[in-house]
């Protein structure tokens, strides 16, 4: 029916007035894999998954989720997916269990089936002990876990998660990432959006990098990293504005891309051990003091910088 594809996205377009939020996005997600959309804020990730969640109608293009068209069979799509929105979409005055019960009913669960499933989900998200507490009194991480739990109630074939780890402590983030991996291990297909390179790298079987409404690259982590070859990513912090030294650094042989945010400059360079002394020399000539240096081997951040000329965090 769908050739083992859980999601087939075909040339999706969506604009808001003059703003083209998504411009011709296409990708496939195989059943049972974790697929990440990686990109800075405003890249079009959330708009894309809003269309896949049937919250937004595309202006052009279509997508099939478990073989159902998002434009022609949205109700079938909704039955097949569980959506974890970026916002904590809960009822703060209801307890965790009451929240799960209400959303379970929205997914059509009733009676003992619903009760059993709530127990299972509470176990998965680690909130069994807190199930009778109002969600409004939870910590940020616990709310995020409950937010995820709601999407698991009806055992969806595909779970769509929009930046589920935004604004939480490292411990809760770890818990959520482990949950995602465990759900995937149980056979659930996961479409995950994030602007955290590390999360995409850790979780994903496939990654699509989005920028300005388009997919600029996609593949496995290793395939993407090969795009930048052996270029290292060098991040330097200086004690003044970047304009004083950036032109000199860009002129150095071996420096390929440069981007600056305030006093932090990120460069893609060949053979960092050869280029680094020349960067220091140029800084001394420009009377700029370097306060820190970080050198990273090729990674997704470097890929993004290589493809777009901007850092992921620039948004």
């Amino acid at each position: 029916m769908n050739n083992g594809k859980a999601i087939e996205v075909q040339d999706l377009h969506r604009h808001f007035g003059d703003i083209k939020a998504v411009q011709g996005v296409s990708f496939d997600v195989r059943q049972g894999e974790i697929f990440s959309l990686l990109g800075p804020n405003g890249a079009g990730k959330s708009t894309t998954i809003s269309m896949l969640s049937c919250l937004l109608q595309p202006n052009a293009g279509d997508a099939l989720v478990m073989g159902h068209s998002i434009t022609r069979r949205p109700m079938e799509v909704k039955k097949a997916i569980g959506v974890v929105p970026q916002e904590i979409a809960l009822y703060p005055d209801l307890t965790a269990r009451e929240n799960l019960a209400f959303w379970g009913k929205m997914y059509g669960l009733r009676g003992k089936t619903l009760g059993r499933r709530i127990d299972q989900v509470l176990e998965i998200i680690g909130l069994v002990e807190q199930q009778k507490r109002p969600a409004g009194k939870f910590s940020g991480g616990m709310k995020r876990r409950l937010n995820i739990g709601i999407a698991l109630l009806h055992k969806p074939q595909v779970i769509i998660m929009d930046e589920p780890t935004v604004g939480i402590d490292p411990q809760s983030r770890r818990h959520i990432l482990d949950n995602v991996k465990e759900l995937n291990r149980q056979g659930m297909t996961v479409l995950y959006t994030t602007h955290y390179m590390e999360e995409a790298a850790e979780l994903s079987d496939h990654i699509a990098i989005m920028d300005q409404g388009q997919i600029v690259a996609s593949g496995t982590h290793d395939e993407l990293v090969k795009i930048v070859g052996k270029q290292d990513r060098v991040e330097l912090t200086i004690n003044t504005e970047s304009e004083r030294v950036l032109p000199a650094w860009q002129a150095i042989d071996g420096v390929h891309k440069a981007t600056a945010t305030d006093s932090i400059i990120t460069l893609l360079v060949d053979e960092s051990d050869r280029v680094l002394p020349r960067l220091f020399e140029a800084a001394i000539e420009a009377k700029v003091h370097i306060t820190s240096v970080t050198i990273q081997e090729p990674n997704l951040e470097a890929v993004f910088l290589h493809l777009t000329g901007r850092a992921l965090r620039d948004g």
Binding site: L55, K78, K79, P85, E87, A89, L90, Y91, M106, I150
Partner: peptide, 16 residues
């Protein structure tokens, strides 16, 4: 309050 928390919008991702 339901709309502000986006729970109202979330309902649209369910088969309702």
């Amino acid at each position: 309050a339901e709309r502000k928390s986006q729970a109202l919008q979330r309902m649209l991702t369910t088969p309702v």
